[in-house]
């Protein structure tokens, strides 16, 4: 169900891109207006999400992360998994963001003949996720060659490394292949694994299909159905220097579809699960040092609720009679205030 909904959504976007490319009156809307809307919605949307997350109080540090917490001197602390210092938190966050450390712990439960329930390591999801995210990042950074003038230093560097094998003309980039393979894995994992299919929603399939659409149209444009790259760059430079020009006639339909997919992704990004891009930095199990016992953490909403401290002495004063009657031990026989 979710698959079909997502497929139809992506097909509708493709159709919309076809219309935008071929109805000349709409060229400007699709090449200039929609990109601006997308950029604004993306940036504002992400900021709104971050502010909303930051508005919820995190009352206490979460000590139950994988790894020994700081304890007695002869017990070895796991500094990266259960850090008690700011530096340790930075290390844990870096491992999470750059190498998906928590996904590396992913395990798989399977019911086998017997019946026997088995648990085993499952690194495939980690591997393909890593391949997907890094490829996507590098491809995004490589696209700066269409977005900026002067050229940032990293563009030629990434192109040289990425096109290292020097096969095909134009050069095949390693990340292009890795991205497509990783997307195929991530998508078909949801299709063929019945357990994952059961919990998959349209919002799981749609981003995968949309990003696949971006990748496929991009690859087709680079290797098979060439578009006028000079016209593309002139358009993008116009948009990104706030002096947009009318889109050139030379821009192909493939380019319009590619651009519309990217704009859709930008608009969809802040309101979907894809915001984990910024959300990962707000994860309480990743960004808080385990200092539960070393530092006094005051409940952040204590002022809002106008809560007053209620000490044991006061409690005993309140219930002295009842406690005495029940034969419970008391610190004081008589009220200390009276």
């Amino acid at each position: 169900m979710g698959i079909w909904f997502s497929l139809v959504a992506v097909a509708a976007l493709t159709l919309l891109g076809l219309i935008g490319a071929n109805v000349s009156g709409l060229n400007y809307v699709f090449a200039v207006v929609i990109p601006y809307i997308a950029i604004v919605m993306f940036i504002v949307g992400i900021i709104v999400r971050i502010v909303r997350w930051a508005s919820s109080p995190v009352p206490f540090r979460i000590p139950t992360t994988g790894g020994q917490q700081k304890s007695l001197p002869f017990i070895k602390q796991n500094r990266l998994d259960n850090p008690s210092s700011y530096l340790g938190v930075l290390g844990r966050m870096a491992l999470e963001v750059l190498f998906f450390r928590s996904l590396f712990r992913n395990t798989k439960a399977e019911l086998k003949e017997g019946p026997m329930l088995t648990y085993g390591a499952n690194k495939w999801l980690w591997l393909f996720s890593l391949a997907f995210h890094w490829s996507f990042l590098i491809i995004f950074l490589r696209h700066f060659r269409f977005l900026t003038n002067p050229m940032p230093f990293f563009v030629p560097l990434l192109q040289d490394i990425d096109g290292f094998f020097q096969i095909w003309v134009p050069l095949v980039y390693i990340t292009n292949i890795a991205l497509v393979i990783a997307l195929a894995y991530l998508f078909f994992r949801r299709v063929f694994d019945s357990k994952v299919r059961y919990i998959s929603l349209p919002s799981d399939y749609f981003p995968l299909l949309l990003i696949s659409g971006i990748a496929i149209t991009g690859i087709l444009m680079r290797y098979f159905f060439k578009t006028d790259l000079v016209a593309v760059k002139e358009l993008m430079l116009g948009i990104l220097s706030f002096s947009p020009s009318a889109p050139s006639e030379a821009l192909s339909t493939w380019f319009y579809i590619h651009l519309l997919f990217v704009c859709s992704l930008l608009i969809y990004f802040p309101m979907s699960k894809l915001v984990h891009m910024s959300g990962v930095f707000m994860s309480p199990t990743r960004n808080l040092a385990n200092t539960n016992r070393m530092v006094r953490h005051v409940n952040p909403w204590i002022d809002d609720l106008k809560m007053k401290t209620h000490t044991y002495e006061e409690y005993e004063d309140e219930f002295r009679k009842v406690m005495k009657g029940a034969g419970m031990p008391l610190d004081k026989e008589e009220s200390h205030v009276s």
Partner: peptide, 30 residues
């Protein structure tokens, strides 16, 4: 909460994702 740290994060986000515009506008070669 943690306004300082969150604002630094938002600032980094804005700088990264508007960097094409910043490069174009500051480079003057767009």
């Amino acid at each position: 909460y943690d306004t300082g740290k969150v604002l630094i994060g938002i600032l980094i986000f804005i700088l990264v994702f508007t960097s094409p515009m910043l490069i174009n506008l500051s480079g003057g070669k767009a």
